[in-house]
């Protein structure tokens, strides 16, 4: 399989999961589409190198996180070619409530929670992705959980 076909295949097979990841990271469909498209475009340009050395999925997820936390300040969003509508309801009212509270967190805090509780990454790995210390990850997570009124149980295990 040549590189182009391989990359296209990756986009086809992983695109939906990455879009969902973008949605969890950013909390809205436009940003999710923007993140996934931009990160995949960058992956495509770097494909042969990434394919050899790294895990493409890890590369693209890390790129999405970094794009998200660094570009919120003043976003110059490119034209989105494909718009993704939001749909779906939470089964429980409390979950909808928590989702809404998550929307109000600063992007960095939200990202820490997504990496920890959605991606299930250890704090050390989160620290490496965000380029901060483990202590910062821990304190950001603790502050985020406090803001969301979530009782901390798992933290010590990390």
């Amino acid at each position: 399989m040549d590189h182009t076909t391989e990359f296209d295949e990756f986009v086809r097979s992983r695109g939906d999961a990455l879009l969902r990841y973008g949605y969890v990271l950013s909390g809205n469909a436009d940003d999710a589409a923007d993140l996934v498209q931009e990160a995949l475009a960058r992956l495509g340009d770097a494909w042969s190198r990434v394919r050899k050395k790294d895990d493409p999925e890890g590369y693209v997820r890390t790129t999405m996180v970094r794009l998200h936390i660094t570009s919120w300040r003043r976003r110059h969003r490119e034209e989105l070619v494909s718009v993704v509508p939001e749909k779906g309801r939470f089964d429980r009212y409390e979950d909808a409530d928590l989702w809404a509270d998550l929307q109000r967190l600063p992007p960095r805090m939200r990202v820490v929670l997504v990496l920890r509780y959605y991606e299930d990454l250890p704090d050390a790995e989160i620290a490496a992705i965000l380029g901060v210390s483990r202590g910062t990850v821990r304190s950001q997570a603790a502050r985020a959980l406090d803001k969301l009124r979530i009782k901390r149980m798992l933290q010590e295990a990390r």
Partner: peptide
């Protein structure tokens, strides 16, 4: 709330796009 609530909400939220 509990951390399990958070895990469940994030997973459920992901399916809404």
């Amino acid at each position: 709330r509990s951390e399990e609530d958070l895990v469940r909400t994030l997973r459920a939220g992901a399916g809404h796009v």
